[in-house]
Each structure stands twice: as C-alpha cells, then as structure tokens.
C-alpha cells in the first residue's frame, strides 16, 4: 500500500513537473544558442545538394578551430522562403544546369545581397565550363546586370580572414582563382569552381566522401581553411583590412 502511495505520489510529482515545464514562458525555456547558421539554397535543378554533409563538416571544423559558434543543423532555404533573410549566408552548390530563377526570385536575391547577405556558390562538377557554371553566370548576369563576375585578387580579405592563404583548394583544382561580385568594398557573391563542398563532405563511415586530387589530404586541409576563411569573411567582412592588422599581415605574407 505504502509502495503504491509512493508510486502515485511520484506520478503526481512527475505530471506536475511536466506541467510546470510547459507553463514556463518560452523566454525562460533554455533552448539552443544564437548560433551562426549557414543555409543551403534549394533551387529547381537536378541536384541542389550534391553533398549533404559538407556544411555540417565545415561547421564542425569552424567550431573546433575558431571562436565562432556555428549551428550544425541542416537548413535548406529557397528564394521563395520568407526565412531567406534570416540567414545572412547561403550556400549554393550544384553540378548541372538549373532552371532560370523567376524575376521575383532574382529581385529578392538582389535585395538580399545588396543589404548584407552573402552567397557562396560552389561548382561541384569538377569540370571547366560546366553547365552549372553557365547557369550561374546567366543567373548572376540577371541579378547584377551592370556588375561583372571577376577574379578575387591575392590581397582580397578572404585570403586572410583567419588563415593566411596563398592558393585556393577544393576537391579538384579546376581553377586557381575564386571569383566574386563586389558591392562597394564588400564581395557578397563568392564563386568557387573547385567543388569545395566535395572536399569537405564526410562519409557515413567516418572518412571522406571524395578524394582530393591532386593534393590529397593537404588539399583537403586547405579546402577546410578556405571554407573557414569564407565564413569568417561573411561574418567579419573587411575586419582584417583594418589598420591594426596590416603590419602583422604584411609580415606574415613575406
């Protein structure tokens, strides 16, 4: 009997505790931290997410190597989503051509990039002049008709936001350069042709999904460094061009 009473009392306490938890206003409910989340852009094409683990792996490396708290959850957004502007950095990957965006989508993307959003485009085909590359150029030509996709110079902040990078990397070294579109002194569109995501993608068995050729693991390490630098650039813009950094940067460039 006593044992039953104890069980009943325990049950009541448990129910009350559960109720109490639900009664607490959401503001005091401990949830996740305000993490930086990089969303993957969803679009109409054959494959908008060539590697589902790339961003997760990059986030993991950022968290372990830097002070930035990056969310590791998978987040997909399309240009039609209301949430798009809640994610100041989006990642667009693909290996094939894709259906042209509607005028509304183009307009929205233009506003997003003009007012502070960053778009990282990654050609996962590993080929020069791929159909994805052509679709990207067509799309960017509509977003910024008066601006040109151009090579990012060696002195671009992106190569010094965290690591000092002398060359770019990816799964394959299709191009020796990153490309981008500038608005003022900011580059909100960054374009890699070397399948950066392919180098970062992890396999289900704890290894890597792809080989990095020709540089192997060193090339993969440099790919992660480039990925970290790009995210740092989206977060800090030209911070590393501030006067206080210049003597250090110049010294390390030697």
């Amino acid at each position: 009997m006593e044992r039953r009473n104890v069980q009943q009392a325990s049950l009541i306490v448990l129910v009350m505790a559960i109720c109490l938890v639900f009664m607490i206003p959401p503001v005091f409910a401990l949830q996740r931290k305000n993490e930086v989340v990089i969303a993957q852009l969803k679009y109409k094409g054959l494959e908008f997410e060539p590697y589902s683990t790339s961003l997760n792996m990059l986030a993991q490396y950022i968290v372990t190597r830097t002070s930035v708290s990056v969310g590791r959850e998978r987040k997909l957004v399309s240009l039609d989503d209301k949430e798009l502007f809640d994610y100041p950095m989006i990642y667009m990957a693909g290996a094939y051509d894709f259906k042209p965006f509607s005028d509304t989508q183009i307009k929205k993307l233009r506003a997003y990039l003009t007012f502070g959003g960053t778009l990282l485009i990654d050609d996962a085909s590993g080929k020069k002049n791929s159909s994805f590359d052509k679709s990207v150029k067509r799309m960017l030509g509509r977003v910024f008709p008066s601006k040109k996709l151009s090579r990012l110079g060696d002195d671009h902040t992106i190569f010094q936001t965290f690591y000092m990078l002398k060359r770019i990397a990816g799964r394959k070294l299709v191009s020796a350069y990153l490309y981008g579109i500038d608005i003022g002194d900011i580059t909100p569109v960054i374009y890699s042709r070397n399948d950066l995501g392919g180098a970062l993608a992890g396999s289900d068995f704890g290894g890597w999904e792809n080989e990095c050729t020709p540089g192997g693991d060193r090339q993969r390490e440099m790919s992660f460094r480039l990925g970290i630098n790009i995210v740092m650039y989206a977060l800090t813009a030209n911070y590393k061009k501030d006067q206080v950094h210049i003597p250090f940067i110049l010294k390390r460039r030697k």
């Binding site: 372990t64 190597r65 830097t66 002070s67 930035v68 010094q160 936001t161 965290f162 690591y163 000092m164 740092m232 800090t236 911070y239 590393k240 206080v244 950094h245 250090f248 940067i249 390390r252």
Partner: peptide, 20 residues
C-alpha cells in the same frame, strides 16, 4: 574580435594564420 580561444584547435603554425 576574438577569432580563436585557447580551447580551439591550435595545430597550425602561427605564420599560417592571420591572427594578431
């Protein structure tokens, strides 16, 4: 900005980083 804390992975030579 604090870009790296003492708890972060440090196995990279200083000269390969832009931190001050």
């Amino acid at each position: 900005m604090i870009l790296r804390t003492r708890y972060d992975y440090l196995n990279v030579p200083e000269k390969e980083m832009s931190l001050i």
